[in-house]
């Protein structure tokens, strides 16, 4: 019984962290129409950034600044934002597919650099030597995990509320206007490139925050955590939930993460050993089928975007 509850705590923690990332992605794709093909790079920037800033001093690589934890987490998110700023400045004014290719390239390069630059990231063996905040004061692992879950879920709620406010603000309307009709938005004197850039950076900071929490939870990050396949998983969560709808995005995350975990568990438990080697392979075929199937048959997702109509226009009746 205790095992089940502790697994549940673990599951909800990871799902909530991923949900924060999917919310950040939703701001980019759902509300602004940007195809970020390298979400994992921004997730990774947050993860590595947080551990480098907040970790214990290290001898074999830089970092380990032992910063106050919230500052480290914030620093991770900022690192993701800076990465987004660089990529966005270079590609957002070009044809949309350049942006997709460039962000994809960032992810490949990020993983590659983290794997090789041992002096920066610890290389293939990953980044260790991080003490989780306040861990010394909570001697029970389970209690600590429950407390951590509370922090993560409250951050998820904060992110959700922040984004809901943002998309209902004039800025949010502007984002949708640019997504629907860039030329019309231009003619109203708005600068689409600039607005898209800020949305891209904001979304990336949120993804980076999720990465920071993820690394904190495991007190460890390695190149294995930032493989391009994570990008696919996050995308599947968003498309299932419904692009443009934040509640849908959260629900989609829990659904896909649940299906992922369940399929992994089922295969490892019931499938013959020689098939188990291919667990990941089969899971990724399923993810691919989910993405393509949703786009073909239900592109609006299970929970379509609710159109937010400007109130000021209606009052004049």
């Amino acid at each position: 019984m205790m095992g089940l509850i502790s697994y549940l705590v673990f599951f909800i923690t990871i799902a909530s962290i991923l949900a924060i990332a999917v919310l950040g992605l939703n701001l980019q794709w759902g509300n602004t129409g940007l195809f970020n093909g390298g979400v994992v790079a921004f997730f990774g920037a947050g993860a590595y950034g947080t551990l480098l800033l907040g970790g214990d001093p290290q001898s074999d690589h830089i970092g380990g600044f032992d910063l106050f934890y919230p500052l480290a987490l914030l620093g991770g998110a900022v690192a993701a934002g800076v990465l987004a700023w660089v990529v966005g400045r270079l590609t957002l004014h070009l044809r949309h597919d350049y942006f997709a290719i460039a962000t994809f390239g960032v992810a490949v390069t990020f993983e590659n650099v983290m794997r090789n630059a041992e002096g920066l990231s610890g290389g293939a063996k990953g980044l260790r030597g991080f003490t989780r905040p306040l861990e010394a004061f909570v001697n029970n692992g389970f209690t600590y995990n429950v407390l951590f879950l509370l922090v993560v879920t409250s951050l998820l709620v904060c992110t959700y509320l922040f984004l809901e406010r943002l998309i209902r603000s004039p800025y949010g309307r502007l984002l949708r206007a640019i997504r629907e009709d860039e030329i019309a938005a231009c003619s109203l004197g708005k600068k689409p490139d600039r607005i898209r850039l800020t949305a891209f950076i904001t979304g990336s900071c949120i993804v980076g925050l999720a990465g920071g929490l993820y690394a904190t939870f495991y007190a460890f990050v390695s190149p294995q955590d930032v493989l391009p396949t994570l990008t696919f998983q996050l995308w599947a969560m968003l498309i299932v939930g419904g692009a443009g709808n934040n509640r849908g995005a959260i629900f989609g995350t829990f659904l896909i993460w649940g299906a992922w975990s369940a399929s992994g568990w089922g295969l490892s438990r019931f499938a013959p050993v020689e098939v188990q080697l291919y667990t990941g392979t089969m899971q990724f075929i399923l993810i691919g089928l989910v993405i393509v199937g949703m786009l073909l048959w239900r592109p609006q997702g299970l929970f379509p975007e609710r159109l937010v109509v400007s109130q000021s226009g209606c009052k004049s009746k």
Binding site: G33, F35, G37, H96, D97, A100, F232, W235, I239, T281, M282, F284, I285, I287, G288, L289, V290, I291, V292, L295, L296, P299
Partner: peptide, 19 residues
């Protein structure tokens, strides 16, 4: 929708590679 095509090609790549 052009962007959906980019997105779908991600999924197709994933399927082919793993199949």
């Amino acid at each position: 929708d052009e962007l959906s095509m980019v997105f779908a090609s991600f999924g197709v790549a994933m399927i082919i590679r793993n199949v």
